[in-house]
């Protein structure tokens, strides 16, 4: 029942991994739009768990699916749109599919073709996934944007990526318009450093999961990455978020370990080495200190209460 965890991070690689067709117009890794009904997935279809390095927008004019972003399950049906940030555990299950679009794009894509778009992404807030429900006439509008984007993607016009970036931003604006009725507060000066720190931290854990590195970075490394003083970074992080840098890192690490314990059958020793614990005892102690439970006990407990056929014990969001 548990979908397998993969180390694949790029969109085209994930298509190839699922043995779905990679169309010839998807010629780059930092942007793609796919009409999902053309993929020919056998329904119901359960994707493996990915840890993508790109943003995803899923638009469903007609279909039923449930997507799992970290520990949150989004139950999606027709007229829903889901926005997902990179560096999350992502898996989806399609039970019916009439028409749907999957758009993936990376930070780098926006930065390269429409630098101003980065701010727009920042304004989307810090949640890992956003789902929104649209009126039928709005979804028509959104679908037109998708079709425009698809047309743009398959042909070779000049400035096509600029136009695509523009269309993506339009989608994001429409999602935000649906999300907030009030005008959001403008970002403070320090927030960009804090956001960058959180982004880098998440990226670090993604690289660990995909096996590229085993080093859990420390505050010194993060400060160096942004050319800031260690003390300054820790001060602004704890002032703006209420949590210290170390708390952020430990919490994230514990959450990742918990995820693996809960959702995979990886042996304990493997998980420990993955995160650079050379001594298994130290790993047990570390986990117990932060959660008050031994890792083995936690895994058994989770398996025991998981009823077969349910989406385990996750937070379920009905859009």
């Amino acid at each position: 029942m548990k979908p397998p965890l993969t180390t694949v991070r790029k969109f085209t690689d994930s298509l190839a991994f699922m043995e779905l067709p990679v169309f010839s117009y998807i010629d780059r890794n930092d942007f793609a739009i796919v009409k999902m009904e053309e993929l020919g997935m056998p329904l119901p279809y359960q994707t493996p768990v990915f840890r993508p390095d790109h943003f995803s927008i899923i638009i469903i004019p007609d279909g039923v699916a449930s997507y799992r972003v970290d520990d949150t399950v989004f139950k999606l049906c027709s007229n829903n749109v889901l926005f997902i940030r990179p560096d999350t555990f992502l898996s989806g299950k399609w039970s019916s599919l009439g028409k749907a679009y999957y758009i993936s794009f990376s930070n780098h894509f926006l930065l390269h073709h429409w630098p101003a778009g980065i701010d727009e992404i920042q304004k989307m807030g810090s949640k890992k996934g956003y789902a929104a429900w649209f009126e039928p006439n709005m979804i028509e509008n959104i679908e037109r944007i998708c079709l425009d984007m698809y047309d743009e993607a398959v042909c070779k016009t000049p400035y096509k990526y600029e136009v695509i970036a523009n269309l993506i931003l339009n989608l994001l604006l429409l999602i935000r318009q649906q999300q907030y009725t009030e005008k959001p507060v403008k970002a403070k000066k320090h927030n960009c450093y804090v956001a960058a720190f959180i982004g880098q931290m998440e990226n670090n854990f993604s690289r660990i999961i995909s096996g590229e590195t085993t080093a859990v970075l420390r505050i010194k490394d993060y400060a160096e990455m942004q050319n800031l003083n260690e003390g300054y970074l820790s001060k602004i992080v704890s002032n703006t978020t209420g949590k210290t840098v170390n708390q952020w890192i430990h919490e994230k690490l514990i959450n990742e370990i918990k995820y693996l314990l809960k959702n995979t059958n990886k042996p304990m020793r493997e998980i420990a080495t993955l995160y650079g614990f050379n001594d298994l005892n130290y790993f047990y102690n570390y986990f117990k200190r932060h959660t008050n439970n031994a890792p083995g006990y936690f895994r058994r407990y989770c398996n025991a209460i998981a009823k077969p056929g349910t989406d385990y014990r996750n937070i379920v969001v009905n859009v």
Binding site: N166, L169, N170, L173, L174, R176, Q177, Y180, T181, E182, K183
Partner: peptide, 11 residues
């Protein structure tokens, strides 16, 4: 809508 100007600028 609060995003009216953003959407117009985008279009």
């Amino acid at each position: 809508s609060h995003f009216k100007n953003n959407i117009i600028a985008n279009l």
